[in-house]
Nucleic acid binder design. Structure first.
Lengths: 165, 165
DNA sequence: TATTAAGTCTATAGGAATAATATGAACGAT
DNA sequence: ATCGTTCATATTATTCCTATAGACTTAATA
């Protein structure tokens, strides 16, 4: 399971990624815009700062900024920073390898075999998804959804009155 | 993270899958052969029974047998039975969908977008890996490991004693 | 330069889930 | 009948998750 920590962290970072030149954004704004528990988010941003993914500015008009350009921060980095290793089993983790104590010989362990496959597939996806890329895809799907909504409301077939955003 | 429950369960089932015509195998033998905590494994097997993946026989020469042929049981079934849904986030789960309460609109949520990709990739792997298939791969890698060891010691050029796979 | 609003940061509470053990009842083959 | 199983329940220890309260820090402004 992805922890709420990572989920919230990602959501906050996506907001930062969406505001290019703008100065620091406060934790409270991030919390409100994504409906996240304010205090918890603060703790998360703090951890992201320790990990070097964001920089913070204290005081009156302080807040948080991405340390690097959104195109240079991958989703896998964020998850690794907050949740730890991606691997579902420590014995296939690149970043936090640990032998299973009940295992006789690792390289002929069936569980390890599949889990390694899963880890590799997961890592491939997450390593190649940057904040900027994700943000762009979100924008794209928002546009195509609007187009769809417009079409749908033309033909009066929708029963729900969902707002555009 | 894959729970120990699933890990142990899989390991036990792989033993069952490896003994074709043999009658029921006792939990204690499974536990010993895979170095798993006996009592904990019992609880796991019980759950696997309730889920219909194994059948049990009580009494003197009792034990556990796979309900279906090893080629017809997928790893994903086992994990779903013991750990629940594969999805890292409930809003992309096929078997246990749940809306995130902080989410405004699901289909333009960046987190959901990536996590769905991951879920699909994971499911694809686990749905297509059967106990029999896995067991065969383990056997194959055991063979190649033996061969590799022999070769490596022949050509004295490798500095690490890493196996072929 | 004192004041104070706006923020960051530290520490920890409370609860849920995990991992395992203990105890003993139900059962069935021999 | 009895021995060796599975099966059921509940108890425990431990770790992790989620969240909050409150102390501390910074900087704008008067």
């Amino acid at each position: 399971m992805l922890s709420k920590k990572s989920k919230y962290g990602l959501k906050a970072l996506l907001v930062l990624a969406d505001e290019p030149g703008r100065g620091p954004i406060q934790s409270s704004e991030l919390a409100e815009r994504q409906r996240l528990p304010k205090k918890f988010l603060e703790a998360i941003l703090l951890e992201l700062k320790r990990r070097g993914l964001v920089q913070s500015k204290k005081g009156r008009s302080g807040g948080y900024v991405l340390s690097r350009r959104p195109g240079d921060i991958t989703v896998s980095e964020v998850i690794r920073a907050l949740d730890g290793p991606l691997a579902l089993v420590p014995c296939v983790s690149q970043t936090a390898y640990m032998r299973c104590d009940e295992c006789f010989e690792e390289d002929t362990c069936g569980v390890r075999l599949v889990m390694k496959e899963v880890r590799d597939a997961t890592a491939h996806i997450l390593d190649n998804t940057t904040l900027a890329g994700l943000s762009a895809r979100v924008a794209a799907s928002r546009r195509s959804r609007l187009a769809g909504t417009r079409l749908a409301s033309d033909s009066r077939t929708t029963n729900s009155a969902k707002p555009a955003l």
